[in-house]
C-alpha cells in the first residue's frame, strides 16, 4: 500500500506553547481520520484565537496528551532543537500464522510530520549584550512577544490549512470506512520514544530526506 506523507510547515514555538500547538495539530489530523460516527468537540485555544476540532474520543485525547507530555519532558532535556513529531496511520494485517510467527503487521498508509523549532524561553538576540538587554524597554519586549505570538498564530493557521488541503487532495489511499471503527489506528512518534543516538540519527535522516519511506 502506498504511504502518503505530509510534511507540515515548521513552527517556531516556545516551550510553553508546545502543548497547545501540538494538541491543535494532532487532534486536527486525527479528526480527519476519525471516520466512524463521531460527535465533534470544538476547542478554543487559550494562547491563540484558533478553534480546532476533536473527534470526541477519550482514548484519542489521552493518547495525544500522553505523547505531548513525553515530548515536552524530552524537550526540557534537549532544548533549542529542531525536531519532528510523526503521526502514522496504519492498518493491521495479520500475517499467515506459522509455527514461530503469529505476527500482527502494521501497514502504514499515511504519515504526518510536524516540524517544530523549539526556542529558548528567554532567548536573547545574538549580538546583544546583557547591558543592551537591560536597556531594552519592557514595552518593546512585550511588543516583540506579541508580534511573535501573532506570527505563530498565523503559521499555526497555515498548518491547519495545509492539513485540510492534504486531506482534500489525497483521499484515495484512505482505507474504507469500517463499521464500528471510530478512528483509524495511529501511532505518534516523538524524539523521546527513540531517545538514543541512533534514534536521533534516524530522525535527522528523516528530516533531511523528507520522504522517509522506511515505515511504509
Amino acid at each position: 500500500m502506498n504511504c502518503e506523507v505530509c510534511q507540515l510547515k515548521e513552527l517556531e514555538v516556545e516551550s510553553f506553547e508546545i502543548r497547545e500547538v501540538l494538541r491543535c495539530i494532532l487532534h486536527t489530523i486525527v479528526f480527519h481520520r476519525a471516520l466512524g460516527l463521531i460527535r465533534p468537540k470544538d476547542i478554543d485555544l487559550e494562547l491563540f484565537e484558533i478553534t480546532y476540532v476533536q473527534c470526541g474520543e477519550i482514548e484519542v485525547e489521552k493518547k495525544i496528551d500522553e505523547k505531548i507530555e513525553q515530548y515536552i519532558s524530552w524537550i526540557e532535556k534537549h532544548p533549542n532543537k529542531k525536531n519532528q513529531i510523526c503521526v502514522s496511520f496504519y492498518e493491521v494485517k495479520s500475517k499467515q500464522p506459522s509455527w514461530f510467527t503469529n505476527k500482527i503487521e502494521r501497514s502504514y498508509w499515511e504519515q504526518w510530520y510536524i516540524n517544530l523549532n523549539v526556542l529558548q524561553p528567554s532567548k536573547s538576540p545574538i549580538g546583544k549584550s546583557h547591558h543592551a538587554k537591560l536597556v531594552m524597554d519592557p514595552g518593546e519586549a512585550s511588543e516583540e512577544r506579541n508580534s511573535r505570538r501573532t506570527q505563530l498564530e498565523q503559521s499555526l493557521q497555515e498548518v491547519l490549512f495545509q492539513i485540510i488541503k492534504f486531506v482534500n487532495e489525497k483521499k484515495d489511499h484512505v482505507p474504507p470506512i469500517n463499521d464500528g471503527v471510530i478512528y483509524c489506528p495511529f501511532e505518534i512518534t516523538t524524539p523521546s520514544s527513540s531517545d538514543s543516538t541512533f534514534g536521533m540519527d534516524m530522525i535527522k535522516r528523516m528530516l533531511h530526506s523528507g520522504h522517509p519511506s522506511m515505515l511504509g
Binding site: T28, H32, I50, V53, Q157, I163, V167, K171, I177
Partner: peptide
C-alpha cells in the same frame, strides 16, 4: 458508491474544520 461516500465523509470533516478556521 462506497468510495464516493467515504470521500464525501472526508470532505465534510475538512469542511467542519474549515468553517472554524
Amino acid at each position: 458508491l462506497q468510495v464516493m461516500y467515504k470521500k464525501a465523509t472526508l470532505l465534510l470533516r475538512s469542511l467542519f474544520v474549515m468553517v472554524r478556521l
